[in-house]
């Protein structure tokens, strides 16, 4: 099975700090990583390859040239090759533009059986790129996968929805998005990290995909930490429970015994 896994390079959210006065996120100088959920998608792809053969191509888009370094982790985890779409035109793309670029790249790659993505990127989490990409390429979609098993000519996918678990049979080619529960991504061994440096990486620009000026359907107007106006009354030590209970009683939430 030939699998294309779409992964996104994001800033390391664990190191993100918020400027207290302006509530702005401080993004400058943050290290970049592969979005967590995308590693689950990659792990799922590598396991399918290990079980049934085929090839795993990792596909990623960014305006940042750091992508070439970042993607080595994906290659070390078991992807066979990488296709990187790196162009200034990919700065702050909206989900449509991202999906279009990925769709063009998938067409240019040509042969594939399965597209795998995370359910959303760990930063923006819109979950739009997968379904938009599926629609553009005319593929069936199976989102929110927690289990993926190959069947005769297709996949059996277990989906975790809000109130139900749904099991579906998906013919190939198809697009599947995964939840983090689907697996535990492997941590590559040193030998795999060393070997990753020798795996092929193709770099395409927007023009190589026939794309030019980004057209946007949505624009981000502001992006700030939410204002929290909380009382912040803390109790500690002797009498803390009593004072706490009294506060909740004043709020009309409880009565004291």
């Amino acid at each position: 099975m030939d699998i294309i896994v779409c992964v996104k390079q994001i800033v390391d959210l664990r190191q993100l700090r918020i400027k207290r006065e302006t509530r702005e996120p401080m993004l400058e100088g943050l290290p970049v990583v592969i979005s967590d959920i995308d590693k689950n998608a990659l792990e799922a792809a590598v396991r399918l390859k290990e079980a049934g053969g085929g090839k795993v191509t990792v596909l990623s888009l960014s305006a940042s040239s750091r992508l070439k370094e970042t993607i080595k982790e994906a290659l070390a985890m078991g992807a066979d090759e990488a296709v990187l779409l790196v162009d200034a035109a990919f700065e702050n793309t909206d989900p449509l533009f991202t999906a279009r670029a990925l769709a063009e790249a998938v067409r240019k790659i040509g042969k594939f059986d399965l597209l795998l993505l995370g359910e959303g990127s760990a930063d923006n989490y819109t979950g739009q790129v997968g379904p938009r990409l599926a629609e553009m390429l005319g593929l069936p979609q199976a989102t929110f996968a927690v289990g993926i098993k190959p069947t005769d000519g297709g996949l059996r996918v277990t989906r975790n929805l809000d109130e139900v678990v749904e099991v579906v049979d998906v013919p190939l080619p198809a697009l599947v998005t995964v939840l983090t529960e689907v697996n535990q991504p492997r941590i590559p061994a040193l030998t795999q990290i060393l070997r990753a440096g020798k795996k092929p990486i193709a770099e395409w620009k927007a023009a190589d995909l026939g794309m030019s000026v980004p057209t946007r359907l949505t624009e981000v107007m502001s992006n700030l930490a939410p204002a929290q106006e909380r009382k912040g009354e803390m109790f500690e030590g002797e009498g803390a429970v009593e004072k706490f209970a009294a506060a909740l009683e004043r709020e009309g939430l409880v009565k004291q015994r």
Binding site: L13, L16, R23, D123, N124, V220, N223, L224
Partner: peptide, 9 residues
């Protein structure tokens, strides 16, 4: 957005 750290409009 940003993993729940911010609210984007």
């Amino acid at each position: 957005a940003l993993g729940g750290n911010t609210v984007a409009t």
